[in-house]
């Protein structure tokens, strides 16, 4: 095989950037590691829920589910929207990507707003026993991830206006949308633990 063979040259087209693959590998490793923190918090929450003698603080008889449910639906569907944005990018439709990507960001922002409304209507605080502590720790830590995700998506949107940015690969977008799916899956587990489990 000589170097003029087209199949050899394929590896050296501008789309092939050596370090992109590393970024995605590193990011996946990071996500696996990050999920352990959530796992630790989930384990703590479950243990407290099962063993704590006084679970709900005085004057609180549970959490309202309607608002978080709407929030869940918005966040879960935003994951699909992010997937479509990615598809547009792969097809080379840059404006399609930008618009749909921005819709994903808006849905994320709505989730954060919903979380804010829920927090401001609650009758217990961080120091209201182990229930208050775990509730705010879990939702707050997850909320931080949502805000980080929105920030990262904004960064990717900004990058898309740089001429020729995505011609050499779109690992940044792939990583961020992976992060978004991760945040989404964490929320689903969290929703079942905090809101659904309280009924049983």
């Amino acid at each position: 095989m000589t170097s003029s063979d087209p199949s050899v040259q394929l590896d050296h087209t501008p789309g092939h950037i050596k370090h992109d693959g590393h970024n995605l590998t590193g990011f996946v490793i990071f996500l696996c590691s990050e999920s352990i923190i959530f796992l630790a918090f989930f384990a703590g929450f479950s243990l407290f829920k099962l063993t704590s003698p006084e679970w709900l603080p005085a004057g609180v008889d549970g959490l309202e589910v309607r608002m978080p449910l709407i929030n869940t639906i918005v966040l879960v569907s935003s994951s699909f929207v992010a997937y479509f944005a990615e598809r547009y990018l792969h097809k080379g439709n840059l404006w399609g990507f930008r618009i749909v990507w921005f819709i994903t960001m808006l849905m994320g922002a709505y989730f954060v707003y919903g979380q804010y409304v829920e927090w401001s209507n609650l009758k217990f605080g961080l120091d209201s026993g182990v229930f208050g502590g775990t509730f705010y720790l879990l939702t707050g830590f997850h909320g931080l991830h949502v805000i980080t995700g929105i920030g990262l998506m904004g960064l990717m949107l900004f990058h898309s206006f740089r001429p020729g940015n995505y011609e050499k690969g779109d690992m940044g977008v792939t990583s961020v949308s992976l992060f978004w799916h991760f945040v989404d899956v964490i929320w689903i587990i969290l929703f079942f633990l905090i809101y659904v489990w309280q009924r049983y």
Partner: peptide, 12 residues
């Protein structure tokens, strides 16, 4: 002021 590890607040 949380009580994750304080028995008096239900912690462990």
């Amino acid at each position: 002021g949380t009580s994750f590890f304080k028995p008096e607040g239900g912690g462990d």
